[in-house]
Design a protein around this nucleic acid. Structure first.
Lengths: 211, 211
DNA sequence: TTTTTTCTACTGGTTTTCCGGTATATTGGT
DNA sequence: ACCAATATACCGGAAAACCAGTAGAAAAAA
């Protein structure tokens, strides 16, 4: 006996991607695209009234960030499976998405097979991640412990001022504190980020997106 | 009398985008998608034997960069209209593409209307750029003159070593030159990028994508 | 082949950063 | 009220960076 098709909701602001997904999924009768939305708010208000089994969620929406969408969706319908979709594989975003509760993640170069696979796996309560995405997950496990150190508010502030080319004295004047204090902050920053001068301090700060 | 439909070639490595484009264009009988390829080499070898009127060309291909594809295509078939396609609007890429000879550029959030419009305009020998893309073009004209200073090969090298936290002496050893020379390079770098210390040097270098 | 740019190198001096510590208010959370 | 984290501040000294100016080789462009 034939199962009832898995109801799909597509959220993506690119018409061509929406149409593409619909076409790719139309050949397979295990899935059925119920509807689509091109922004976050419409999606959420739809979910208040109606539901689906699996959501294909683009991370780059015009109104609400995809990462923020996930908990909002799960808040309304806890048992919807969410599959993240994006063009490029940015480790930080993928990690965030997974933390927030997506069950799958695909890049947009996924094939129809991968798509249907992901959907049915996620619908059964399993996880499914595309091969590139898996590679990223492995990498991020490998460098576990390399978590970015937490900087205090003051340190972040001083950091940006250093990046602006201000000297210790400049910064001290600007913050109405002693230059010696500023230096202490700078030294703590360098220690936390494991560097030995301001130049590489800025480099790793940019790399770790602290600026 | 009905015109012969404009023959289209799609080049994109995302199956869902290909299908989406085909679907979006299928409603309009002024255009006809002849075929598609998912990489640059296949595209070029096709063009050796056959041709089309307009190419929809993704800038992110697995093998050949989209920017480099443009002259290669025009080299084979000078009178094909090329429309660039990308997800995000990066000014430098768009400028490069235009320099290389694309007649249109769209972001992937384009609607079916925009697509068909762009295609027919380009086919008639005109230009067509999406609204976001136009904004970028205007911006890049507005800040003309703010061109990034040209760094010499040596300067770039020194710059990266500074970013790695190396001191003047370290760099001198590594390059087998006098520390005084390295310092001269550093000073020239700071002058060219209009900063007064290594920290902000790195910051602007990153901003201007020199690292 | 000239001319220009780039790479190299120096003198001499000032400023700033960096390092090893130490230490006390202040604030935030439980 | 208490403890941890944060922000504050200091000393003394070494190291490195920064500034202003000059200038000769080498390489690239005209």
């Amino acid at each position: 006996m034939q199962h009832k098709p898995i109801q799909i909701l597509i959220v993506d602001d690119h018409p061509m991607v929406i149409e593409g997904l619909k076409t790719l999924l139309s050949d397979d009768d295990r899935v059925a695209v119920k509807c689509h939305f091109m922004n976050g708010t419409d999606t959420l208000s739809f979910l208040e009234k109606d539901t689906v089994d699996v959501i294909l969620l683009d991370v780059n929406l015009p109104d609400i960030n995809g990462v923020e969408m996930v908990p909002k969706i799960l808040d309304i319908r806890a048992n919807i499976g969410i599959i993240g979709l994006s063009t490029y594989s940015e480790p930080s975003i993928i990690n965030q998405m997974i933390k927030n509760g997506v069950k799958g993640y695909l890049l947009k170069n996924a094939t129809a097979d991968e798509l249907v696979n992901a959907i049915s796996q996620v619908h059964q309560g399993n996880f499914y991640f595309g091969s590139e995405v898996q590679k990223i997950l492995v990498d991020s496990v490998a460098q576990e412990g390399n978590e970015l150190p937490k900087l205090t508010r003051r340190e972040k502030h001083v950091l940006t001022l250093i990046a602006d080319g201000k000297t210790t004295n400049n910064i001290a004047e600007e913050l109405f504190i002693s230059p010696l204090t500023v230096e202490t902050h700078r030294r703590n920053l360098m220690q936390k980020l494991e560097v030995s001068n301001a130049a590489s301090l800025i480099k790793v700060a940019v790399e770790k997106k602290l600026i």
